[in-house]
């Protein structure tokens, strides 16, 4: 485990991405502990520029932008990770089912996947969210989750189909392993990198989409999140009156987590697909692999000695 982590951190993109994401998680977990309990409280005059009292200024309602930002981090990350799990769960189950069982099941799932892929996501989300009324961040997470699984299902299906033709899978089938064992013991471990890739991508997508939906006025305006902050800023013409802090703070927060997550994803991609590595990383990876082999060989020697 520790060795895997070392190889992982040797990739600079993955390491920086991980650091950014962990920083956000830390802020979300412990940040609110240092702040006043109510981010919606009025703490000063409207549109006060940043100063010592309000680190990032105040909104038009006189609310503290910094406090809202920290509380918003909690909401946005929670929605992102929850919907990410949902997307991955649906996509993986459908992808494996289609790729493993084939036949009619594959035809039906594949058709549904392709249809969902071509129906434009945001317009569809707008219709669903509009009928649900001003929805809480949690409900937004659910509707994003149930409409965004198609990409993951398609990729998982393709990988499952290619794995299914491998000799070791066919051998275990001949031995008579039951389907559940085939899926969970033989297939799953080889799908892990795709599932992880899908998860990180889905979290990024959800955080961005939630902020967009709320910006368009489809969230609950009383919830504190980056999207509602942008919505209130847009509605109070913060830009036109020069209150840049009200826009810039949530904008930078969304951009930062997006960059962190996509660096992480790109790093993981490079690690699992050696062709994408640049020469420096290849040398570093080769060295890491050598060390790993040596450590393993030593471990085996010790085992043998015992």
């Amino acid at each position: 485990m520790l060795e895997t982590l070392k190889v992982f951190l040797r990739n600079r993109k993955a390491a920086i991405g991980l650091a950014i994401v962990l920083g956000y998680v830390a802020v979300a977990l412990i940040g609110p502990l240092f702040l006043a309990a109510d981010p919606m409280a009025r703490v000063g005059r409207p549109h006060m520029p940043p100063d010592a009292d309000a680190l990032m200024g105040t909104t038009r309602m006189g609310r503290d932008v910094f406090a809202q930002l920290i509380y918003g981090t909690r909401t946005s990350l929670a929605v992102g990770f929850f919907a990410g799990l949902l997307v991955v769960a649906i996509g993986t189950v459908l992808g494996i089912a289609a790729g493993y069982f084939g036949g009619l099941i594959d035809e039906v799932i594949n058709f549904c996947t392709n249809v969902v892929l071509v129906i434009p996501q945001l317009p569809l989300l707008l219709v669903i969210a509009a009928f649900l009324g001003q929805t809480s961040p949690f409900v937004i997470a659910i509707i994003i989750g149930i409409t965004s699984w198609a990409w993951g299902a398609r990729v998982t299906r393709a990988q499952t189909m290619s794995l299914r033709r491998r000799e070791y899978i066919q051998a275990s089938e001949l031995v008579g392993e039951p389907a559940h064992r085939m899926i969970f013991v033989e297939l799953m471990p080889n799908l892990l990198s795709i599932i992880g890739f899908n998860f990180i991508g889905s979290v990024t997508y959800t955080i961005i989409t939630q902020a967009t939906l709320e910006f368009l006025g489809l969230g609950n305006p009383m919830a504190v999140s980056w999207g509602t902050m942008l919505y209130h800023a847009q509605n109070s013409s913060a830009i036109a009156v020069g209150a840049w802090w009200e826009i810039l703070a949530p904008a930078a927060a969304v951009a930062g987590i997006g960059i962190g997550l996509s660096l992480l994803n790109f790093g993981v991609d490079e690690i699992s697909n050696p062709r994408l590595r640049t020469l420096g990383t290849i040398a570093a990876a080769a060295k890491a692999q050598e060390k790993l082999d040596r450590a393993r060989a030593q471990g085996k020697l010790q085992e043998a000695a015992q």
Binding site: F215, I239, A251, A255, I259, S262
Partner: peptide
Amino acid sequence: SLALQAIPPVVIALVALFVFGV
């Protein structure tokens, strides 16, 4: 370009509006 790709359109548009417009 990877970093830019991860930033939602709404953020880029708002920042552009502020910098070049206002």
